[in-house]
Design a protein around this nucleic acid. Structure first.
Lengths: 220, 220
DNA sequence: CCGATGAGTTAACATATTCTTAATGTCGCG
DNA sequence: CGCGACATTAAGAATATGTTAACTCATCGG
């Protein structure tokens, strides 16, 4: 929770702790950013009006980091500032809470926001995927087949992982380039084939199917 | 969007449609429930104060259904009703918007809520079309008939997909050329026939009907 | 600092499937 | 009977992909 007014900070902190929440506070934007990055909280509450770096800016910077892509961020704002409300949401905030703050409403809101964050977390993909006898372990970057561990190179693994992320779906070459190589890299068009070749060599021929003129898909 | 005041409903509907959203409205809780179940919207906006079934009750009922487990639900509420706000969030609502409503803030809020729902909707629905026993899956580029998966070549699939996109409609040869081959390619006029032939061979003879002098159509 | 190693890429050529064409056959209708 | 419109077939052209080997580049242990 980031706010430049110590009274408000203390007041809300007290209420949250009473409800059993773990609360970290910061008195300004920079400090807030630092603590957020170090602690990766489940919910971030930002005051909009702050000297130097305001809440909107903190939010913008956080949203640029992949680790905060899904963190729930909410703002505190004086009631009538339409503009900051809009900016807050446009910059990737999930909600805003208007001052003056009433403890019970505030707590309900926090509860709702955290429930949402939980829900979002359930969707999170697991690090291990299992399809048709292959166990793909994202953390170890390995594939296990018939009890045997197959080591894949990074690109090979990323390619396989993409295909396996939606078994049966046909991924076009363009799609594969964008997701595995990124939009800014340009590589020749035989490159994918070669990687497909090596993959098939390692995991077996029949898993990856070519759909001529369209792309590749993982078959189960 | 469910509200018992036609004026508000119309006002918000107008604003949402102007932004390109697809809006369904209902004047009371029951109707809202019915429409929600039939249409499975991405976002549900409920007025809290309504005669008979209020918004909180609608929300509670929706949240009990698995298909609405992750749908984003928000409430409309008069400013000072602390209690309903708390109830709204406790019953599984994701947010509430206070009246009086300001269009720009409202739209920003809706935008933020829908963005969230997108984030959650990684489990997106596949685009499959089902007609007379054929299941055409665009993502997988396959056709399934009697549990059997039929593989089509690219052009064959595109041709079938076009015909199936409007079952019963007669597509002229010219139309087929334009949509499947594109306006810049020139191919002989027996080409379509050949592809139709192969399609019929693969999916069965009776699905595609020739309308002499006009074109082809998909029969259901 | 050096050579070994291996991932990633490229180029050249081989292969395979899809697409198109062209020749010929069928059908219905005036 | 002859014509127009579509059907059928097989063969060749057009493309897309497969395959191999060589090259570049970064990394790592000695």
């Amino acid at each position: 929770m980031v706010d430049d007014e110590p009274d408000i900070l203390e007041f809300l902190r007290y209420n949250l702790i009473k409800e059993g929440y773990n609360v970290l506070t910061a008195g300004n934007g920079e400090e807030g950013l630092k603590i957020a990055m170090a602690e990766l909280p489940n919910l971030i509450i930002l005051d909009i009006m702050m000297p130097k770096m305001d809440g909107v800016e903190v939010c913008r910077q956080l949203r640029n980091k992949p680790e905060f892509d899904r963190t729930v961020i909410t703002f505190l704002t004086a009631r009538e500032e339409d503009y900051s409300q809009i900016a807050a949401l446009d910059v990737g905030g999930d909600d805003y809470i208007t001052k003056p703050i009433r403890p019970r409403v505030f707590l309900s809101r926090v509860k709702a926001l955290l429930r949402r964050s939980e829900r979002a977390e359930v969707i999170e993909e697991p690090d291990v995927i299992e399809v048709s006898g292959l166990i793909i372990d994202k953390e170890r970057v390995t594939v296990t087949k018939d009890e045997e561990v197959i080591e894949l190179a990074k690109k090979e693994f990323e390619l396989l992982h993409l295909l396996v992320s939606k078994p049966g779906k046909v991924f076009s070459r363009e799609e594969i380039f964008n997701k595995v190589w990124g939009t800014d890299v340009i590589v020749g068009n035989r490159t994918i084939d070669v990687h497909i070749r090596k993959l098939r060599e390692k995991i077996g021929e029949h898993y990856i199917k070519t759909i001529k003129g369209i792309g590749y898909k993982f078959e189960f």
